[in-house]
Design a binder for these strands. Structure first.
Lengths: 343, 343
DNA sequence: TTGTAGGCGTTATCAA
DNA sequence: TTGATAACGCCTACAA
């Protein structure tokens, strides 16, 4: 004795028409051009819709229309506040354009990313924003080639076959390292990974440039590679640093993102290492929690919301403007100095 | 001179059939029952699909099939790590069931929530998980009545007309207050808001029960109402507390969530108030950043991922099992004591 | 193994 | 103002 009709197909315009005693076309008119139908009929039809619990079938609608009213953002890691801020920037822009935004989380898995992209493409979304696991993934090209606008967010591609919005990571790395050098540090850890990530490499390059410009030896920079950019990995990196003999131990650490920096900071504090006196720490992203940390974190700020908003605008342009040309927007990061580097 | 055909309709099975020189049914077979078609034909068809950049039209597919393969979670605030953890629990369960999860963010706006719900309903998603702005919203009933399974996450309803998963907030409030009472505090601030939120009220009730059980006067609890549960509001609450004359100023604060607690902590630190000596702080949720805070935060932990996973299982049961009956699952919170309350 | 036909629900066109 | 009809793209019987 089932409690509920599982297969109960919901009412269609046809059912509504029958119930209201009008034709199917009239119902459609009530929905789409209410002014073309007399008040009484309109009311009768609306009454029937209510009674039957009529819900427009978006699939049918879209099939007919050919395109949807939604935008999608495939996030790399929804648990990282950086990306949720980017998403909120996108959301804003989507709302202004009267589109709704759906979020998909690839959780750092290329496979999940792939299946999300495939589904979104099949759903004929207006455009896809994506922070890809691997920006060089050929899937991105395929999706774009088949006609869905794709914009790469917070990453760049070697070629210029996409619109992208990103922040100058080399500059950001340079700013962070210069700041530490200015404060007199000569042994600096560079904490992050995995090392194949573009951000890891770019920020490292910037840091190296700063080291070189200061006339310091290359090995002033001590690489501490992590498996991921999470708080847990940051703590782990902390214990690795602590394991070094004091004379070789860095007096400062530049972390590729704030989650790592927070983990590192946490390790330092629980093991009695004073920050910044014994270990200065610079993070990256300036997420909200950076300022609220044990020791407020010096960090490299990126314009997160702006990043998202701009990406959304680009994808909309690509979706609606036949004259669209790809653009690679590069924003400038900014160092925010706080106690974690200021004695 | 357009660079691109905007309206270019993408290839359909019919086009593929024509290109491959087979019938439409064969193409469909290649897609859905590849074994029923000879290897050569199959290859020919696949070649054509590749050449034409064929992408299945999910709308058409769904229209035919009647239902989609996606689950949706309408989040209250994607910027709150608590909810992203819940989301990841849902995601896990969805993945096991071979459904894909889309996330929508209502950003605390009833209006946005409404439009997301409407669209999801029209899209005939398999089920909707939602942490509503207002659990009593009639829209939830309507959606459910029209046939889309709806599960309320991290909230409860007065009636039992939905499946819901939540955590015992009264108990959580009691645990937090008892902990502070045990540590000898007699003037405790209760920080949170807006005050109409169920969580605000339930946790407050729990705190009051603890106060009463300890034989303390009711006004041992000092309400500090905030406009939202964010870090910024927490800071603001801090300055309000600081404004009280010392003899009336609470020596401890119980914050309705960790974001508030982090903001409060941040204010305390920058204004030289020692935590926990001068002000003990308890948060709620035990988000990852709580342990990494300036002073590691005592907090009431909720089983976030489990919450999500359970909610997903309930909605799937409702979607597939005709014998389904609504259940209200209530999990038990747990106090995690850290330095912010331990001198 | 392959081809043909009908229908899913909506919308728009056209005729009444 | 209202009603009939065709089409969107896919899938599945059923027929060849």
């Amino acid at each position: 004795m089932p409690h509920r009709d599982l297969g109960a197909r919901s009412a269609s315009v046809k059912d509504v028409a029958a119930a209201a005693g009008v034709s199917l076309g009239t119902v459609s008119n009530v929905l789409n051009r209410p002014d073309r139908v007399s008040p009484e009929t309109r009311e009768k039809v609306q009454r029937a819709m209510l009674d039957l619990g009529f819900v427009r079938n978006e699939s049918a609608r879209q099939l007919r229309a050919g395109s949807s009213r939604t935008l999608a953002y495939v996030m790399l890691d929804a648990a990282n506040p950086f990306f949720t801020d980017v998403a909120s920037g996108i959301d804003e822009a989507a709302e202004s354009a009267d589109l709704s935004l759906v979020l998909c989380n690839s959780r750092n898995s290329a496979e999940r990313e792939l299946s999300h992209l495939a589904l979104l493409e099949q759903q004929r979304v207006q455009g896809i924003l994506v922070t890809p696991v691997d920006p060089e993934s050929p899937m991105l090209d395929e999706v774009a080639r088949r006609g869905t606008p794709v914009v790469v967010v917070d990453r760049t591609r070697a070629d210029q076959s996409f619109c992208s919005v990103a922040v100058d990571d080399v500059l950001g790395g340079r700013l962070a390292a210069e700041h530490l050098i200015d404060r007199g540090h000569t042994r600096i850890a560079y904490v992050g990974g995995p090392s194949h990530l573009g951000q890891f490499r770019d920020r490292l390059q910037g840091a190296r440039e700063a080291i070189a410009a200061a006339g310091m030896p290359e090995d002033s920079l001590n690489l501490v590679e992590t498996a991921a950019m999470t708080v847990v990995e940051g703590r782990e990196a902390g214990s690795r640093l602590a394991g070094l003999p004091a004379r070789r131990r860095p007096t400062a650490a530049f972390c590729v993102n704030d989650l790592l920096a927070l983990g590192l900071l946490q390790h330092a504090i629980t093991s009695g290492v004073r920050v910044p006196e014994e270990l200065a720490i610079v993070g990256y992203d300036d997420i909200e929690f950076a300022a609220a940390a044990a020791v407020p974190l010096t960090s490299v700020r990126q314009p997160r919301q702006l990043l998202g908003r701009t990406a959304a605008e680009l994808v909309l342009d690509e979706a609606t403007n036949a004259e669209h040309t790809h653009r690679q927007v590069l924003f400038t990061p900014e160092l925010v100095a706080r106690s974690s580097t200021l004695a």
